[in-house]
């Protein structure tokens, strides 16, 4: 039963991943990518990572909606009403990606993966929480600084009028 679910989700994930670059409408491309992420969320649920699966679904829906907002705002023909292709050096890119896939696949199949060490804890989320608060605390603090830097950077880059030229002081 789980194997069937795995193959269904895996094939849908890759198919919608390919569809992202095939469809004309930007909104459809974004929601194809969202479908691919939802399948990956489902796969994580299959791997007993309940928290991470639900998290990927939660975060990716919001991010893909933000992505759709920007896709529609900056792309030439957002609804795909005028068929046009925005591809340059397609052949070369296809060649490289197929080569990369072949190399990765060979590496995957050939390397003898080590056997599993230890059993999955009864509550992986609790284990994750303990890791973040304990040994992995540096990861969280580092990411906290990265988030702060991103906030300030993105506000600096994107806002046109700063605090000095407030138009209608309210």
């Amino acid at each position: 039963m789980q194997v069937a679910a795995f193959w269904a989700l895996a094939v849908t994930a890759v198919a919608s991943g390919v569809a992202v670059f095939r469809v004309d409408s930007m909104a459809r491309a974004t929601f194809a990518l969202l479908a691919s992420f939802l399948c990956v969320g489902g796969l994580l649920l299959l791997l007993d990572l309940h928290y991470l699966g639900a998290l990927v679904v939660l975060m990716m829906i919001m991010e893909m909606l933000v992505m759709a907002v920007f896709m529609v705002m900056y792309m030439m023909n957002p609804a795909g009403l005028m068929p046009m292709t925005m591809i340059h050096n397609g052949r070369w890119a296809l060649g490289i990606s197929v080569a990369v896939f072949a190399a990765l696949a060979a590496g995957i199949v050939l390397t003898p993966w080590p056997p599993r060490r230890g059993a999955p804890p009864d509550d992986p989320t609790y284990a994750l929480g303990e890791a973040i608060m304990g040994p992995k605390m540096l990861v969280m603090m580092g990411i906290g600084l990265a988030i702060l830097a991103t906030m300030i950077g993105s506000v600096v880059l994107s806002t046109d009028r700063g605090r000095y030229d407030r138009e209608d002081p309210r």
Binding site: A27, A54, I61, M62, A79
Partner: peptide, 27 residues
């Protein structure tokens, strides 16, 4: 589920996609 709260939150965020698509669809 052990992560019921996160699942509830994820499913109600799906309404973002629902209402935006309902708005975007009819041109």
């Amino acid at each position: 589920w052990s992560v019921g709260v996160v699942w509830f939150n994820a499913m109600e965020v799906a309404t973002w996609a629902a209402v935006w698509l309902t708005g975007w669809g009819p041109n």
